[in-house]
Design a protein around this nucleic acid. Structure first.
Length: 749
DNA sequence: CCTCATTGAGTTTTT
DNA sequence: CTCAATGAGG
């Protein structure tokens, strides 16, 4: 099997896989075999004896990508991947911090806050500072904190110039102080803390720099500043970083990703070799041509052109719907006929720019009885009942966790009201201690004090009773003894929640039994340096079966925070796939529908005011197009219901950027009766009825028009008659304008 | 403490 | 329009 490792690679892939030890940038276009190159290189490095499995580090953005990488490596090499440093940025940082918690200034059982936990902590801090949460929304403060952490800045280093940033920075400082008191870290903190650990601890830095002879990075275009700095520090001056990315698929600038890191990387790491992977193994020619033509309109590019050895394939299809409902009907018909031709539903994707668009589509599919699956719902570990159970578990691991305390102190209800908690918070703040300590110490007299004491006793009992239990039994005991299960059993719609709680026990069982364990546990088997070894728990070198209760529980809680689970429970076997373009990244389908291709929607109107926003939208469109293997349908609607109002949209400029020769315009599907060609005639009866309000000039609301100066647009409002008649036109490029019909030389399209 | 009503916001999202 | 979050009242 090993001799066949390199078989079937094209020359560029082969060169990338077998590159000598040096920093290199691999520009890997969509569908060019990026993951294959990455995993084959790892397998090749190990197989040829250039590096041991424990001396390389590979980092991804999602757990899914990390799992896939591990699975592919196991398939290529007969080695045990357990213990290898392959994971997400956050997962790897967590692992390092667990191993060196003392050097990092963290308690051994530090807990991880997810975004919701973080927001509630920020709210508490804003309140404690006596700030007006209307004027300074906690959400904004949270954004401020994360943006600065991701830029590598602590509150003391932030240059606050205006009043708002000064106030938010105050929140940042207080928030960090509170996190330290409670022994909790947010996602960005995992990275920043790990970065600082390596930056200030020379022995540790030297150890890891020497250890990780090869560092491989997936989706490099999505790295933020802090991740880049972390990589640089970890690699060191002698490091070899193999970065794989595609600047054309950078669609997360809005959350801090800097595709500019690719330029910096070439400079900072003295990159000698930039390899472009441009042969695409996924899509047929017409689809690739469309993608290439579109993305050529972007200026900020490293430059790359995809090609395929396959034929041109089918033309793209463009359908202009009258309404969003009509658009859904078209898609439905096409899906039906494809399905009857033998295309599996799960091989068809329905993509849209924003989640709100899925509603109409779902409605149509539901009524037609077509099974579908929507990505992007509540995830398992984010469910209320699961968060409650985790809060109890967290309190048994670390009672100083105020967030967990507040979440369950009165859930299930046990007579600890808002008033009691307020008093407790005040006394905790006064003494600069956690709520737990405040509750243990000077519990107020009376009924409130009794309830608090009972809660304290409950947590202590949970702790004592689970001390020597294996992980699944800890979880089982806690969901029962906390009263959660009983509470939900008593609720009329609580059956599903009880099931989820039981599922949590199963999750713990699965977790304890598999390798996920190693990823989140402190790393004890790979000889960290003195400074580090000293900070490890006494049982250095312990085997997995000896790992203590707190380790197993901490690992499981980390897992819960860092891997919130599938977006939705896997539905029936064969279902149509509905998702936003963002969540489609990395996936591929036989047939893809991109819906809502309208100005204002895609590109989204908010993006137009942002710096580089339009180019990011175009990259997003590029990602959408390149998901398709054989068939690509593009649809837009003249009229769409959004936020309770009808909007009249112009076709997306992206449609104009695709060469007409690649596209076949289709009118309503063959399954529907043929319609007259005129725009008004093509409207379904109910839509036409609602639009039949003609203005004096003979123009109609919803009609497409052109103006000699402003170009293409759609009439969205009309008023007045005769010489006073005015219409409001939504121009694709010029935006909304009121025009007097007497003067404006408007033309119907 | 729970329920009902009002209010407001409404791109994209992983960790 | 529709969902989530907050606040008043039983």
């Amino acid at each position: 099997m090993s001799s066949s490792l390199l078989e079937g690679l094209n020359p560029q892939q082969l060169e990338a896989v077998t590159l000598p030890r040096q920093s290199a940038l691999i520009l890997a276009g969509a569908g060019s075999g990026k993951t294959r190159v990455l995993t084959t290189r790892i397998a090749w490095l190990i197989h040829t004896g250039q590096v041991g499995p424990l001396s390389l580090l590979a980092v991804t953005f999602t757990n899914k990508a990390a799992r896939e990488m591990l699975a592919r490596i196991s398939a290529m090499l007969p080695i045990n991947t357990r213990g290898m440093w392959i994971g997400t940025f956050h997962g790897l940082c967590n692992r390092m911090l667990r191993a060196h918690y003392r050097d990092a200034g963290l308690p051994q059982s530090f807990q991880i806050l997810d975004s919701a936990d973080q927001l509630s902590m920020v709210k508490r801090v804003v309140k404690a500072l006596g700030m007006d949460d209307e004027k300074y929304p906690p959400k904004q403060a949270q954004y401020f904190i994360n943006a600065n952490k991701e830029a590598g800045l602590r509150a003391a280093q932030v240059e606050a110039t205006d009043d708002f940033s000064r106030r938010y920075n105050q929140v940042y400082a207080a928030y960090d102080a509170q996190c330290n008191r409670e022994g909790v870290v947010d996602f960005a903190e995992l990275l920043l803390r790990c970065y600082e650990l390596l930056a200030k601890n020379e022995a540790l830095r030297a150890h890891y720099q020497a250890r990780f002879r090869h560092i491989l990075v997936d989706e490099f275009q999505d790295t933020n500043r802090l991740q880049y700095l972390w990589l640089k520090l970890l690699a060191g001056p002698q490091g070899a970083v193999f970065a794989v990315g595609d600047d054309d698929q950078s669609i997360y600038a809005f959350r801090g990703a800097r595709s500019g890191n690719m330029f910096d990387f070439e400079r900072d790491f003295g990159v000698q070799k930039v390899i472009k992977l441009e042969q695409n193994y996924r899509s047929q020619g017409n689809i690739l041509d469309a993608a290439n033509a579109l993305i050529r309109h972007n200026r900020a590019r490293l430059g790359k052109n995809l090609w395929t050895a396959e034929g041109k394939g089918e033309s793209l299809r463009l359908y202009e719907a009258s309404t969003d409902v009509d658009e859904a009907a078209y898609i439905l018909d096409e899906v039906r006929s494809l399905n009857s031709e033998g295309v599996r539903l799960s091989d068809i994707a329905l993509l849209y720019r924003s989640n709100a668009q899925s509603r109409v589509l779902e409605h149509a599919l539901f009524n037609a009885g077509i099974s579908y699956r929507v990505y992007g719902g509540l995830r398992f570990f984010e469910r209320q009942e699961i968060k409650h159970a985790l809060a109890y578990l967290r309190l048994t691991a670390n009672p100083e966790d105020d967030g967990a305390f507040l979440r369950v102190a009165n859930f299930p209800a046990r007579g600890i009201g808002g008033r009691t908690l307020e008093q407790l918070q005040a006394s905790a703040e006064g003494a600069a201690v956690s709520l737990w300590r405040a509750a243990c110490g000077n519990a107020p007299a009376g009924k409130a004090g009794t309830s608090l004491a009972a809660f304290v006793r409950l947590i202590e009992d949970l702790r004592a009773a689970t001390r020597d239990l294996p992980l699944p039994e800890i979880v089982e005991h806690v969901i029962e003894a906390s009263g959660l299960v009983a509470h939900y059993k008593g609720e009329k719609e609580g059956a599903e929640r009880v099931e989820n709680l039981e599922e949590l026990v199963n999750a713990a069982t699965a977790f304890a039994g598999e390798e996920g364990f190693a990823i989140y546990s402190a790393d004890r088997t790979d000889g960290a340096p003195e400074a580090a070894a000293a900070s490890n728990a006494p049982e250095t070198g312990a085997r997995r079966e000896n790992v203590g209760r707190s380790d197993a529980l901490n690992a499981f809680l980390s897992h819960a925070a860092l891997e919130a689970g599938e977006h939705q429970a896997a539905a029936g076997a064969d279902a149509l796939q509905l998702m936003t373009v963002h969540s489609a990244k990395g996936l591929e389908f036989d047939t893809v529908f991109i819906s809502g291709l309208e100005e204002g929607l895609f590109p989204h109107e908010n993006s137009l005011t942002e710096d580089g926003g339009l180019e990011e939208e175009r990259r997003l469109m590029y990602v959408a197009i390149t998901r398709a293997r054989r068939r690509l349908h593009l649809t837009h609607a003249q009229t769409r219901m959004l936020h309770g109002h009808t909007r009249y949209n112009v076709a997306s400029r992206f449609l104009d950027e695709i060469p007409a020769a690649l596209v076949r315009r289709v009118s309503a599907s063959a399954a529907l009766p043929a319609l007259p060609p005129s725009a008004a005639g093509a409207l379904p009866a109910r839509a036409a009825a609602s639009l039949r309000s003609y203005t004096a000039g003979g123009f109609r609301i919803g009609q497409s028009v052109t103006h000699p100066k402003f170009g293409a647009g759609v009439i969205v409002q009309a008023e007045g008659r005769g010489a006073d008649a005015r219409v409001q036109v939504n121009f694709r490029d010029a935006g909304l304008k009121w025009l007097a019909l007497e003067y404006a030389r408007l033309q119907a399209v």
